[in-house]
Structure formats: structure tokens, C-alpha cells
Design a protein around this nucleic acid. Structure first.
Lengths: 192, 192, 192, 192
DNA sequence: GATGAATGAGAATTCATTCAT
DNA sequence: AATGAATGAATTCTCATTCAT
């Protein structure tokens, strides 16, 4: 678009943040399909027009919410990596329900939205590499017997599934698996 | 299943099936949020009123699509279980992209829709039990070293993640994991 | 679009015609830029949604109004051509203020709207050919001294200008020109 | 002109001129209906507020654009009149596509806008008188056989029609008429 | 079994305009 | 001289749903 880049005021104006918060809340509670500018505005106690003032298109809003969430996630990941027990910290980071619920909402949305696809894909790749490197470090010698890439993927996959099924109330056997997996993870680190 | 069929017209009228097909296609291609009765009608080349004639509410339609998909999935699962190599068949069943893409769409939708939550939860539970039993049988003695419940959950989790990330174009390290996991699965079965 | 052609009921349902009438009126009185579905609905005493039911997009509505007007114009032209004094009848047809005001509105609109451009272009070409043929016939021998194509173009050009400037309240010298031109036209026919 | 200038800031500040240029461009390319302050601002690479700073209301902006265009036109007309071959120069001035396209846009707009109606009407009257006087002078004795007022009106009418139809891609027979008319005009002047 | 008509709600934008700084 | 914030009104369009035939 030819439009002069509409950087609205401070990237961190209180209003802007309120809108992002509201949108995030609506997404988690009612699903991405319901995160309309109207609903978000209502949730934030603002006029719909104001939402459009800060985020010209609904897509812009969604992407902005994603970016902020992704940035937070990166920070959390950085902390986890710095933990004395990085594997367990990684696992806790992965099954953090609140964050993961939002992530899953974005993943569902992204399947049909190019703008998000790109953003998520990039962030996911970076995180994944970081995680693999951390696991490698954490395992030390044991990395030979336990492929870090495989382990990283397993952790994400399992974490996602647990949160996902908790969301639908399904999940027969998940508690049992969680317990077993945590025990196994601890075993890995303990001897390492 | 708990949901009462609010269907009108023959259960298997060609029109009814065409509507279900169209709805499924829209869901996979454009996401559940876009599976409106109008879009589905357009896709099927039918009038919107006709869709409402068969499925009074949009929810009825979505649930009907889910029910049919779940029934198909159950049949596929039954076949997999009967396979001479049940573990590998289970794995192939799990990572069947087309089916899984639809399933993921339903899972995303269900988080915010009670009617589906119940339906999915029930079906998932039944499948899971069947899968666990199959794994137990397939492993025989080895079931002691490889908890079948954990294995079942791992298979689903990994399968879902692979399909999910393929959908977004993300997935660093997934191919490597898939290869490793299939090898490991084969190893299990080979000796079993 | 994949949508099943949405032929709404009888091409001549009363409602449909009321909408076309209202749109035409708004266009003439407030200009094409104000012929919004809302305004048209208000004018017709109908709900805006109903307008969209009959004309999915605003463009569809505008084009439909144009087509009807063009059909009417063709009929009027046919009558004029059949008149015992075709040249004068043609002139009267050309400076029919009501019709011409609408035509001018469409021409202004068409400059920036492809769908209309094509429709107008086609209709104008057909009419022009008919008019030229008529003039040729009316002039008989005199066609040698008065190029029918030129005359046809002059008649349209002058007619348009007169109506146009009457609309703006400008038009110094137009009355004088009109009188002179009509006298000249009469002279042509008289001797012919 | 009658309309009071509601201008703020220097009459010729670069910004003000940039806004006028942008508005003119939008009008020609997208039509007056799309010459909103926002679109104009975007086109000029400026903030919408700035446009309102220079032109409090949208109408002010449109009128200012018209005024400038009218002034330019008057200058061009003056040059044409001073030409050794004033009739041909007048004709070239009339069918200058760029200028005429803008004029037609204003005429279409003026039909429904009082402020413009007055401005255009006044300017058109002045120009017309000037043109008639010029033709009278150019024709000399021949003015008896070729009514200058009629000729002036013919020239405008034909010029407008040619540009108008070129804009819509219509115009069967227009080229032929143009050639004939130019020949005729030359004939008039040659012998004069 | 099917469909046309109608409606109210909601969604995404766009816009002109005001105001405080 | 310029601009960010805010707002209310309009606009186009989509949707689910109801109803009468």
C-alpha cells in the first residue's frame, strides 16, 4: 500500500497495550474466530474505531498480538535455558497452559492465514534451534544415545498434546504419560 | 454419541452427503471459522436455504461433519488394528495428513464449543483405549519396558505435531524425528 | 466466483423494481457517489439487507440500474427512429433532460469502473450505429454534403453539453445555440 | 470568485501544493468520489490531520483544487487566444485530455455540490465570453455566416464529448468527426 | 423436499472532523 | 506548523435464522 506507514504513537501507548491484552484474552477464551475488532473493543471498554486507529486491519491486530506473545515466549525460553536444570525448565515452559493455549490458537489460525504462517514459522524455527542446542548441552555425553533433535520435538509434541486435550476435556492416559515422561526426563538429567 | 440427530430428510440422501462433503472441504481449506452455511452452500452449488433444511443450525452441520469424520476414523483405526504390523499401521493412520488436518480443525473449534467438546472427548477416549489395547497386544512381553499408554500418547502427540507444523510450513527437525521414530517403532515390532 | 448464480426470483419482482427505481432516483438527485445501498434502501423504504439480497454487491446494483436505463433508452431511440421526422425526434430524444442526466451520471461513474465501462461502451456503440443509419436515411441525397457520422456525433455532443451545463447552472450562449441548431436541423429536413 | 479562501498557512507552501497535486491526481485516477482527505493524504505521503490543517473541510480542499485548475485553464486560454491561429489553438486547448478529464470530474461533482456549482458556473461564463470574442475576431467578415456563439458552444461540446468517450473507451465515429471538424475549422481560418 | 423472501446482527473498513498539544 | 488521539457516522458485505409457499 502506498499509505505512509502509520506508526501509531508510542509503540507502547497504554491504549495500544490495552487493545493487545483484550485481543489476547478474547482469543484464549472465545477462539481466534471471535477475536473481531468489535469484540476486542468491547472487552477493552473502547470504541471499535479506536481499535482500527491503532490496527488498521484485523490482521494487523492479530499479528501484533502474536508478535508480542512470541517475544514473551522467547524471553521465557531464555530464562528456561539459563536454569540450572534446563531440561526440566524447558518442560515446564512447554506445558505452561496459558501460553500454550494462545500458541495453539495461533497455530490453528495460521493454517489459513499467510501473514501469520510466516511469522510463526520463523519464530518456531528459531526457538527450536535454541532448544536443541540447550538439550545438547544438557545431555553432554548422553547426547549420543538420545538424539537432541528428536528429544526437542518430542517435548514440544507432548507438551502441545497435553495442553490441547486438556482444553477439550479429553486426554485419557495423559496424566499417566506426563508423570512417566517427567520421571524419564529427570532420570536423564540426574545421571548427566 | 450423546448429541441427538436433528436431521431431516434421508440420512444418506445425495444432497445431504454433498453438503457434508462441501463443509468438510471448506473446513480443511479455509478453516472452521469460514465454514458458514452460505459458504458451504456455495461450495456445494446449492442454495443456502437447502443447507438449513438439512441442518437447522450451523452447529448441527458442524457436528454432523464431525460425526461422519469420526466414524470414518474409527473404521480406519479398526483396519489398522487388524493389520499384521499393527504398530506401523497405527503410525500410518496417525500421520494421515488429510484426516489429521480435519481432526485438528475440530480440536481447535472444540475448545470453544461445548457440543463438539463432548463429542470429541468421547470419541477420543474410545479410540485411545482401543489403541492402547492394540499396543499392549503388539508388544507382548515388551510391554513391561515400554508402557503402552505412554507409547499411545506419544504416537498421537508426535503425529499431530508433524501434521500441524507441516500445515504452517514450520517444522525444523521434524523430518529427522519422523525418520528416527519410525526406525525405533520398527525396531520394537521387529523383535516383538 | 463459485457461488451458484443467485438469480433472485422473478427478474421483475416488485421489490427488485422498487430498488432499481430508488437507486436511479438517488443517482440523479444526489449523484452516483451517494447511491449507496443504505441510501437506496432508505429511499425505497426497505432494509439495507434486502438490497443486498437482490444485488449482492453495490456494483451489481449499479450495473442493473444502468442496464435497465439502457434498455429504456434503446426503446426510446427505436421510437424516435420510426418518427416521420426522425432528425427532430432524435434531437428531442437526445436532449431529454431526465434520461440524459442519468446517462451523464453513468458516464462519470464509468470512467473509474471497469464493469460499467464495458457495458456503456457496448450500448453506446450500438446506438451510435443506429443513429448514423437513421441520419443517412433521413438525409437522402444530402448525405453527401452532411456527413452522417459527423452529424450524429454533433447531435450527441451538443445534447450532452446542453443538459450538463443546465445541471450546473452554467451555459452562457447555450440557449442561443440550441435555437440555432434546431433551426438548422429543421432546414435540413425540410428540404430533404 | 465568490468562495472565500479558508486557507491556513502560506498560500504557496510546498505542503499545500503537494496536497493539491495529490488531490488532483486522485480525482483524475479514481474519481471525485474517492478524493477523500485520507486518500489524498496517503497519496501525498502525509498524515490525514495535516490535510485538514490546510483544508478544514473536504469541500474546502475540492474547491481549492478546482480554483487552481481553473486559474491554470484561464492562463492556457489566454495563451490560445494570443496564438496567431486562435481557432486551432482554441481547439487544441479544448481537447487537452488531461485538463478536460479533470474538468469533467468537476462538472460531474458540481451537479450535486452547490459550492462548486457557483465556482464553475462563474468561471465557465467568463471563459465562454472570452472565447466568443476571440472567435468573432478570428472570423472577421465570416462571422456573419458562422455565428461565433454557436461555434464556441460547438467547440466545447465536441471537445468534451471526445474526451469523455475516450475515457470510457466508447466513441464509435469520433475519430472521423474529429478529423472532419479539424479540417472544417482549418478551412474557416484559411480563407479568413 | 426445496426454495425465495426477508430480517437483524455483526464485521471490517473508511471517513470527516475535533481537540489538545 | 504539525500531529497523535479519539469518535460517531456511514458503507459494504456476510451470516444465521425464520417463514410462507
Amino acid at each position: 500500500m502506498a499509505v505512509a506507514a502509520r506508526r501509531i504513537g508510542a509503540e507502547n501507548s497504554a491504549t495500544r497495550l490495552a487493545i493487545l491484552d483484550a485481543c489476547e484474552a478474547v482469543m484464549v477464551e472465545e477462539g481466534y474466530a471471535n477475536a473481531s475488532t468489535r469484540r476486542v473493543a468491547a472487552r477493552a471498554g473502547l470504541k471499535p474505531s479506536l481499535v482500527h486507529y491503532y490496527f488498521p486491519t484485523t490482521d494487523d491486530l492479530h499479528v501484533a498480538v502474536y508478535r508480542r506473545a512470541a517475544d514473551w515466549a522467547s524471553e521465557e525460553l531464555a530464562k528456561a535455558i539459563a536454569d540450572p536444570e534446563p531440561l526440566m525448565a524447558l518442560w515446564r515452559y512447554t506445558i505452561d497452559t496459558t501460553r500454550m493455549a494462545l500458541t495453539l490458537e495461533f497455530m490453528a489460525m495460521a493454517v489459513h492465514r499467510e501473514a501469520l504462517k510466516a511469522a510463526i514459522s520463523e519464530h518456531a524455527g528459531e526457538s527450536q534451534k535454541l532448544i536443541i542446542a540447550t538439550i545438547e548441552r544438557a545431555l553432554g555425553d548422553k547426547a549420543k544415545d538420545n538424539n537432541p533433535t528428536v528429544l526437542a520435538t518430542m517435548i514440544s509434541a507432548l507438551g502441545r498434546s497435553l495442553v490441547m486435550e486438556a482444553g477439550i476435556g479429553a486426554g485419557y492416559g495423559h496424566e499417566e504419560t506426563r508423570v512417566w515422561f517427567e520421571g524419564w526426563l529427570k532420570g536423564l538429567t540426574a545421571k548427566a
